[in-house]
Each structure stands twice: as C-alpha cells, then as structure tokens.
Design a protein around this nucleic acid. Structure first.
Lengths: 276, 276
DNA sequence: GGAGCGCTGTATCGTATGTTACGTATTTTG
DNA sequence: CAAAATACGTAACATACGATACAGCGCTCC
C-alpha cells in the first residue's frame, strides 16, 4: 500500500524517462517544498522544461498540477499536526528492507561510542592536535585508511605540517626518521588488526611519538603504545564492520581542533576565513 | 527580535481590524498551510473577502502575496531541514562541551537523509552495482574522495573490476576511454562543487556511463547527468560540513551489494567466506 | 543502416490568480 | 446626533500561471 507521494515517486521512478527522473530526484531531495512552488520554479530547479514537470505529475496519477499541490499540502498538514509521527522512512516495510536495522544499529553505535567518550578526553586530544609544537602524521589500515585521509584533508588546511602516510609499507616506514617526541601520530586500526601497522606504531612509540589511536571496542594491540585511545562501536547487521562511529568522532575532533585554533586566534585561521 | 512570521502576526494582531484579525487567526490555527494556498481559498477559510487577505499580508510588511508565500516556504524549509530544534534533549548536559550538539546534529542528519531515501532506491542502486556487466569506477572531491576510497576498498573485494580514480585530474580523465554503457561511475561531490568533477561526469555521461551521485541536499550540478542521486544532509554546528550521513549511506550500500551477491550465490563470495 | 517510436523542449493559448478601483456599510468623533 | 473616517466587499482588470499542440531529436529495434 502506498500512503505518501514520496513513496509513490520512489515506486515509479524506475519507469520514468530521464527528464522526469530529474524532476523526481529534485523533489525528493528537499521534499516536499519544491512541489509547492510554481511549475516554472520547479522546472528550473530540476533543470528541465515546464511540460516535463507536468508530465511528471501526470505520471504520478494527478489530473493537473494544482491537484498535485493539494495532495502535497494535505500530506504536509498531517505531518505538521503530529510531529511525533515523523518516524524515519515509513516506506520501509517492517520485514523486508534491511535498511532500517542497519541505520538503527549505526545510530546506536554512535550513541554508545560517545557515551564512553568524555568531553574532556576529546578536548585533550584536540588540544594535542592543535598545539603546533611538532608535526602530525595520519595513517590507517586497509579499510580505515580513508578515515585517515579524510581527517588529514581537513587538518592540513587549518595547520601546517600535517601528513597522511600512504602507499607501500616501506614508504611510510622510512618516514619514521622524521618523527620525534614533539610529533603526533594518528592511527586508525580495527579488526582484523594489521601486523604492519602494529610494528609501525611500536617503532614510532619508541621514538617518543604521541600516538592517538582510533580502534574498535576490542582494542587494537596498538592501544599499548597509545597516548589516547578512542574505542568506537563497529557492529552492524552486515557482513562488514562499520566505521561510521569512528568517522563521526573524527569529524567531531576536526571541528574541535578548528574551534581551538580559532579561539587561539591563529593567523592561518583568519587567513582561511577571508578565503571563504 | 522577531524571527518567524507567526511571531510577527501575534505581535501585530492587536492593531488589526476585525476582518484581518480573522485572517490572522485562521492562519495561526493551522500554520502555515493556509498561507500557502491561493488568496481565494485563504479568504474562504477565514470567511472574509480576497482584498482583506491582501491587506492583511500588506500590513505584515510584504509587498505582495507571492512574497508572503515565499517567506512562509523559506521558513518551512528551515523547519523541515533541522528537526533537531524540535527535540529538545533534556538528557544532554546543557553546560558541557561542544560535543553533544555536534553529535545530535549528525544523528539528525542521518535520520533525515534516510527519511528521503527509500529502500527501493537503495536496492536499485545496489542491484546496479551488483550486476557484473561492466566495470565500477569511484571518485570523489577534495574532502569526499576518502569516501570513494572507503567504498572502493570494500567493493573491490567482493567483485572484480572495481577501480578508484585517484591522483591528478589528467590521470583519471584518460581513464574515460575505458568507460562505456555497461559501466557504473560512483561520484561523491558536495559543496563547493568541483569544476573538474563536473566536467568529468559530463564526459562520462556522454559515453553512456551510468552515474551514481552522492551529494548534499543542494544537489551538485552532476545530478543532471546522474542515473541515481543520493542527497545527504551535511549541516552541523562546525566550520566544516559533515559527510557522515553520506558515509553511512555508503556503508549501507556496501552491505546491500554484499547481500545481493550472496543471494546470487556468487562463487567469489563463497571463496571469500572460506577466507574469514 | 534505416524506419519507427518515445522523449523533450519551444511556442502558443486560455484561464485562474493576484491586484486595484470604487461604492457601501460600519464605526468613531466632535 | 451628525459627519467624517475607516473598514469591508463587489466587480473589473492585467498578469502570470498551467496546459497543450507541435516539431526536433535521440534511441531502440529490425
């Protein structure tokens, strides 16, 4: 059974020609507001012509555009009057779709991850990353290296001397000679923990490098060498572990570091502002 | 300070004549829907004439009726996009650090992103990625390329011919000659949209490549060329946009593709199982 | 490679919509 | 109580909005 227009669209979007599909996508993207505007505005937003919009609503079963708008308004009225019913994706059939459980598990993971993570802990790590005594290196494992890249991409903008260690093991192993007590090494490592990373962490630790470890709740062996450990929940109903919680922690940290540097009035940040 | 139109009305309703006051009351009664209808409908609902409605909106300071409606729509857009403001969470320590708001916003972003995303849509994309007629290419922008890498790292394990396009523009631009109708190109692009990516997407589209686009709610121009568009929420209380919602969608897709291939009994998957 | 079909945009048309002018009703004030 | 001012609705108007016809184009299927 189809109750909302959004469902109706996603049900038939497959059978639509390209132009009408663009219309459908733009409408879904910020539903239902685009549909409440005029045909001309809708068509511009979707990058198609007016008749295409009209054919689109016709395909949905509406006699004319006003009727379509009325339906959207009625839906919106029902939604606004009972904000409690703003459940996520009522389209999902309780049994079939495996999306909701996945999302629910991910959200739970994040809440749980942050429940075990104090503000002070994050602030400390942020402070460590923000104080520019030495260099910052980032590295990750097979699946988590993208997280290291993501964090590096941001940090490298707001401060100098941020390096992502990429490529072959032999390459970043040689970078060890650049590292010392004043430096910070951010490592992402979840199961299955990688031998090469562990060895690398140990060597870095011996050189006095401060290690910040992102790992899962079972803690990578690297935790032995780490100054700070962030343990994220990774279990989801999937064949793969989820790094989403660690990703959010990383984003939070990026934000915290940025804020601390702003507060410190770093020149680089002010320069950055002017570029925005 | 007056922020919403509803406030504006209740502020001036005292100085209004009887007819306009009735208009104000009917609008407030089921705000803001009555204001989105036509003048005639509004007037009937309020039991007054059309000119009275127009005088009413004029008294609120609007030049004409469409301007008034635009203002209402903007307000509604802001309201729909940040359901966070609605759920005041007494559990979170109000005084504490800047962590909770960031997390709350991220969780909201995810819920909102998936609310606009049907199971069917995800299943369609997963099916497209799972059917092994052609090759799969992944690429991202400055900050989102790590997401492309993350997805590529997983997909490359469960199926052959998965390539992440990295490095200089000239390098992946030349890969276009390998792409054709049977291939899929997954692009991550959020504001500020990168010219190079747009050009690349256009070229790929011209070659008949099926494009799956991960973007933000304002839709990258690439949406024009995309077969499938995933619009994630990115707004968080930080100097940076958040890609966390897109990350979770990516993980969900990875899971869905894996499941489909398992269901299809792909040999590669069985081989993979034995390696675990 | 050619014929047919379907999709899309341009241009045009009729109409519903917002707007305005004006006359009547109602209230206010001296 | 009278006169003026204000408020309100009816009716006519112009704009812009949605609808439609038609032609060009690309795509698919013989």
């Amino acid at each position: 059974m189809i109750s909302s227009i959004a469902e109706l669209i996603s049900d038939r979007i497959g059978t639509m020609p390209a132009g009408e599909r663009r219309a459908a996508q733009t409408l879904i993207a910020n539903y239902p507001l685009t549909g409440l505007k005029t045909v001309a505005e809708f068509s511009i937003a979707a990058g198609v012509s007016s008749p295409t919009i009209l054919r689109f609503v016709a395909r949905l079963g509406f006699q004319n555009y006003p009727e379509f708008q009325s339906a959207l308004q009625d839906e919106l009225a029902a939604q606004l009057q009972s904000p409690a019913s703003r459940t996520l994706n009522p389209a999902s059939p309780a049994g079939g779709g495996a999306v909701s459980p996945m999302l629910e598990a991910t959200l739970d993971n994040m809440r749980e991850t942050f429940r075990h993570l104090s503000d002070k802990q994050l602030a400390d790590i942020a402070a460590r990353l923000a104080e520019r005594r030495g260099k910052t290196f980032l590295i990750g494992g097979r699946f988590t290296d993208p997280l290291a890249r993501y964090m590096a991409a941001h940090l490298a903008i707001i401060q100098p001397d941020v390096y992502h260690l990429a490529g072959q093991e032999s390459i970043w192993r040689d970078r060890l000679i650049d590292m010392g007590k004043r430096d910070v090494l951010v490592i992402f490592d979840i199961r299955r923990y990688q031998e090469s990373l562990i060895r690398f962490a140990e060597k870095a630790h011996e050189r006095g490098v401060q290690i910040v470890l992102f790992t899962d709740q079972w803690l990578s062996p690297i935790a032995r060498f780490a100054r700070h450990v962030i343990a994220g929940r990774t279990a989801v109903p999937s064949a793969w572990d989820s790094s989403a919680a660690l990703f959010v922690v990383a984003e939070t940290l990026i934000g915290a570091v940025t804020r601390q540097l702003e507060a410190a009035g770093a020149k680089r940040i002010r320069d950055l502002e002017s570029l925005r």
